[in-house]
């Protein structure tokens, strides 16, 4: 890619298409949220919206998976995530063990289906 565009141009694209689109939201958060009180009722709504948007990102990746994940059948994709969630709940909410469990289901499923 960088051979195609040249290093400086690739870095400029990184700033315009990668850095700014993310930083704009973070700085908007500092500007608008930097003064909110921790116990404020508005924060309950903001946190709910943050969780729901993250949930949307999760659903999007599972329904329209990128790259190599698209080659995995939907039942295995969803099955691995559901298994991870169940293991997470069963282990007093350990993210790490849940992630390992979900990944193990995916790898085993891929191996089993050849």
């Amino acid at each position: 890619m960088t051979e195609l565009m040249g290093e400086w141009q690739a870095l400029l694209v990184l700033l315009l298409a990668g850095f700014l689109p993310n930083e704009v939201w973070r700085m908007l958060g500092v500007w608008l949220g930097g003064g909110l009180d921790e116990g404020s009722e508005l924060l309950v709504w903001v946190r709910a919206v943050a969780s729901a948007i993250l949930a949307g990102v999760i659903a999007q990746i599972l329904l329209m998976p990128p790259g190599a994940l698209a080659a995995v059948p939907p039942t295995l994709r969803f099955g691995a995530v559901v298994a991870g969630l169940i293991i997470f709940l069963a282990t007093k909410r350990s993210i790490f063990i849940g992630v390992l469990g979900g990944e193990a289901v995916l790898l085993f499923g891929q191996w089993w289906m050849g």
Binding site: S51, A52, V57, A68, G98, V99, E103, L106
Partner: peptide, 27 residues
């Protein structure tokens, strides 16, 4: 595929662990 599955898995479990109130779970 395993590396790409890490993102939805961690996002889901991280968000679930951050849930404090009913509103968070429902969201």
């Amino acid at each position: 595929a395993a590396i790409l599955l890490l993102t939805p898995l961690t996002f889901l479990l991280s968000t679930a662990r951050n849930c404090r109130e009913l509103a968070d779970y429902l969201a």
